[in-house]
Design a binder for these strands. Structure first.
Lengths: 349, 349
DNA sequence: GTCGGGATTGACAGCGCTGTCAAGACAGCG
DNA sequence: CGCTGTCTTGACAGCGCTGTCAATCCCGAC
């Protein structure tokens, strides 16, 4: 491998003891400063901070974990097939962790294997790692067995975008309904009256929510508006099939909302194959602002979830909690979507 | 938050001491078994393993780190804009880490900010975290300043797919040349004689390598073969522009190789806009087998790098090293690409 | 039967930090 | 001026494990 282990140039890292000595105070006082504990005089604070800075002191996480009851590690439960989605969420959570010198552990829980397996898997995860908290990402946020296990173990957790039984725990939410209404209105205001809807995967609560919001909003504009629905199962393939169905109907849709971007890309391809031009002949809006949104032409009008911020918030909640925060009350941070106007919607004269 | 901290049901985790007692041996003997040290009799081994199993003992990483000189943490240096690429590499590395109860720390190094900033950034990373090794992913594998810093600190590292100065360190390689030759032959054998090439980003060594291999291979078939080149900078947009250039030339290419999938998707879109059908009028091959490869129609013929395996191998090398392995010699694990035949290439009569 | 040497096992001192508890400092009050 | 209560500071044990070193065991060779 590539190195020389004999740290010729590397002087040993400063310890808390070193800082204490340099500042002329006790070990424990340095500890107090590091942990921002109360009852520290300004004078002592200054001395210690100067010494810390001077020695470039960085506390040793392993020692802190061993001696105290924090462990500087959070877990994230993952089971989302979309790398882009996962990546953004995790990036946000990771950033929050880094800021507090925490580490993030990733755990894939395979929903496909059924709730029994999942419960077993999480028990194992909890037993074998010392965590200060757990972040549940969709679709794991809605598996009751998981929540049960977590509660039994007494591990704090935060659910991201839970679909059901929302009040049960701390959570980070985002209002899909609201975003979908914007989509519906956007189409409506541009003169569209015949709609297509590509549904997602029924096992994800988000799927039903998005569908219902879209349909309801449109009906509120006109009770007997035309909406053709088809299943797209959140994939390109699914969107392709759904698109062909929607666009080759007798009175085809002029505006299609796909429950995610992959599906929307499928619809665009279907349009192309049917000789329809986007947005001239069909308008399309996606959901997620994933990577593909910019890998199609025209680039896709879509809705972006602030996933990084959501992940960040979730981790932040857990970290504050570990520092000795808010017991009893279930925090809830809410975020808004951002509508991203690009090139796939046309205004009908 | 969602829990009860008073672990009513949670009995304390077993410690090594507990195991020693249960097995009727000394603490140190259990430690030997856990660390697979030599000089342990079969009888003792059995007793200890039984006790470990019985008590569901899991060693405490923090304590091990504190007491020993391993820290059970590896770092990955990231600076690749493609989430899919990063994700796959990291997933593999992470899996290897999990198997050995290691943790992976991610660090973004912003190449765009220039080598000076990077060196500073890595110094800071190395100073503030206790790592057993570092994995460099492209394009960080080719920043000499980074390697210098790592070596100065004496931290073992492995470079993934380094482009230059390969022998300098341990590494995990994959032969782009070989894969690109396959691509060239694949086109050639199917009767194509007029080629288009979408180049990548010059700052990535891979870009030049892929380009050269493609051109050389084709020339080896026929010295004055027609190859039109255009810059695609590894993005969809770039591929789109490059595609329009290549396909609207006087004697347009019938087969286009794009240095990555995003670029290939751009070429396909360009073809569509020019009224050309893929693969009937133009054949396209990409590189990476990224998410978009299946989000276009027809789905993209491409080349897949075994990124998970590569990440896994890199982490594995570092972990073995930390266990006290191969000093002096620079390991090198080599991987092969896999050619993925899908629907974007046509055989010319 | 005895000795040398390697194989096997264990005792023990910390690693760097936090939690506990007690001591010292200091202000206010009678 | 002494006493009490609060604020600040420090001493100390020990978290769970590994590295060191010494003790013990077992074997073949003499």
């Amino acid at each position: 491998m590539s190195d020389r282990e004999n740290g010729q140039t590397t002087q040993p890292r400063a310890t808390m003891q070193d800082v204490a000595r340099a500042a002329g105070v006790s070990l424990k006082s340095v500890s107090r400063v590091i942990n921002a504990e109360p009852h520290v005089s300004q004078k002592l604070l200054d001395k210690v901070q100067a010494a810390i800075h001077e020695l470039r002191y960085v506390p040793d996480t392993a020692a802190r974990s061993l001696a105290g009851q924090r462990h500087f590690m959070l877990g994230v439960l993952l089971d989302n097939p979309s790398p882009h989605y996962t990546m953004r969420l995790v990036a946000g959570a990771y950033e929050a962790c880094r800021q507090h010198r925490y580490t993030l552990q990733f755990d894939n829980i395979y929903a496909a294997e059924g709730p029994g397996h999942q419960a077993e898997r999480i028990e194992q995860i909890l037993h074998s790692s010392r965590l200060d908290g757990m972040i549940l990402t969709p679709p794991t946020s809605d598996v009751p067995e998981l929540l049960d296990s977590l509660e039994r173990k007494g591990l704090p957790y935060v659910r991201i975008a839970p679909g059901q039984d929302t009040e049960r725990s701390a959570r980070v939410t985002v209002d899909d309904r609201d975003a979908v209404r914007q989509v519906a209105d956007y189409f409506w205001e541009r003169g569209h009256r015949r709609f297509g809807l590509v549904r997602g995967l029924w096992s994800h609560p988000s799927s039903r929510i998005r569908r219902d919001a879209f349909v309801e909003r449109l009906r509120s504009h006109s009770p007997d508006v035309s909406i053709i629905e088809a299943d797209g199962d959140y994939t390109f393939e699914g969107g392709l099939r759904a698109g062909e169905e929607l666009l080759s109907a007798r009175r085809p849709a002029t505006a299609v909302f796909a429950s995610n971007d992959d599906g929307a890309a499928g619809v665009m391809t279907a349009a192309m194959r049917l000789g329809l031009k986007v947005p001239h002949d069909v308008s399309v809006i996606g959901f997620d602002d994933s990577w593909v949104a910019k890998s199609v032409w025209p680039s896709l009008t879509t809705v972006r979830q602030p996933l990084e911020e959501m992940g960040h918030a979730a981790a932040q909640m857990l970290i504050s909690r570990a520092l000795g925060g808010h017991h009893g009350t279930f925090a809830n941070r809410h975020f808004e979507h951002r509508f991203i106007e690009r090139g796939t919607v046309r205004t009908i004269a």
